[in-house]
Amino acid sequence: MSHVLQTTLARPVSYSGIGLHAAQEVHMVLGPAPADTGIVFIRTDLPGRPSVKAHLTNVTNTMRATTLEHGAAKVFTVEHVLSALNGLQIDNCFVEMDSAEPPVADGSSLNFVELIEQAGVRTLQAPRHELAVSRQHLVQEDDKFIAILPYDGFRITFTSINPHPLLGVQFFDAEITRETYVKEIAYARTIAFTQELDMLKKLGLGKGGTLENVVVYDDHTCLSKLRVSDELVRHKVLDIIGDLALVGPTLKGHVIAVKSSHKLNHLLTQKIVEELN
C-alpha cells in the first residue's frame, strides 16, 4: 500500500486560447477535486455540464490525438493537459472547458505546468493509488514498439528514428520526477511536416497550428525556431506521460519505446489495465 498521499490543486486557475485541431476559442479552468476523483473533464458549454473521466475505458479515438467520450461529454487532444497533471503528480483535478478541445497554448505542456504551479498543490488525506507492473508488456507494429518492464519508479527510454535529414536518430532517457518533467520535457512542442499539414487541413484538423505552437519541418529545413535540438524525442516522451495517465493510478515501471505513437501508447495502456483486472 502506498504511503504517499493524493494531491489536488490548492485553488482554481484558468487559461483561454484556441484548440490545435478545431481552432475553436476555449476557456479552461483547472480546479481542485476531492480524493479518488481522478482527472475529470467537464463540458461547461453543454446542458447539465456532462463530464468524462480521463480513463482508458472512455477513449474512443487515438488518431493524431486522444479523444475521450462519456454520454454527451466529448473532449479531444487532451494528452498535453494530462501530461502536465501526470508529470506534476496531480491525482485529482476538475478540468472545465466550454469547448471540446483544450487550448493548444504553445504546443507543449509548459503553459499547463505554469498554471498548476500558480495554483499550488494541496495534499489530501487519502493514500495515492500506485500501480507497479509485475511483468513485461510489449506492443509492436512493424519497426515500432513500446514496452514496460517492472521497475521501482517511473522511467522512460525513447528512441526516435526519422528519415528527415535534420532529425535522424534522437535518444532520450530519464527518470520521470516532477523536477525532470519541468526541466527536460514540459517545454517540448508538437512536431509536424509540411506534407502532413496539407493532409490534416483536408481532414479539417490542425486548423489552430502555427509555426510557434508546432515545430514544422519541410523536406529539408525546420521552419520553426527549435527550443532544443532534440525537441522531437522530448515531445514524444511528453505524449507518453499523457497517454499513460489514462491507466488511472500512478504508474511504476520502465517504459522503453522506439518510434512509438499515440496508437501504440494506447495499446500498451490497455495491456497494463488488463493486468490490473
Rank of each mutant, 00 (worst) to 15 (best):
L5C: 00
Q6G: 01
T8R: 10
A10V: 11
Y15A: 05
L20K: 01
A23L: 03
A23S: 11
H27C: 09
M28E: 07
P34E: 10
A35H: 04
G38L: 00
I42S: 06
T44F: 11
D45H: 08
L46E: 03
L56H: 15
T60H: 06
N61G: 12
T62R: 08
T62H: 12
M63H: 14
A72T: 12
A73L: 12
A73K: 10
V78Q: 01
E79I: 04
L82C: 11
E101M: 14
D106F: 03
E114F: 10
L115S: 02
I116V: 14
E117F: 10
V121W: 04
T123K: 10
P127M: 04
H129E: 13
E130K: 08
V133Y: 01
I148F: 00
Y151L: 11
S160W: 13
S160T: 13
I161W: 03
H164T: 00
F172T: 14
E175C: 05
E175T: 11
R178C: 03
R178H: 06
K183W: 06
A186S: 15
A186Y: 13
F193D: 06
L197F: 12
L203P: 03
L203D: 09
G204D: 07
G208F: 09
E212V: 12
V216D: 00
D218V: 04
H220R: 11
L226Y: 14
V228M: 11
D230W: 00
E231D: 00
L238Y: 09
D239A: 09
I240T: 01
I240V: 05
I240D: 01
A245F: 05
L246I: 14
H254R: 15
V255Q: 02
A257W: 02
H262D: 10
K263W: 04
L268P: 00
T269C: 15
Q270V: 13
I272M: 09
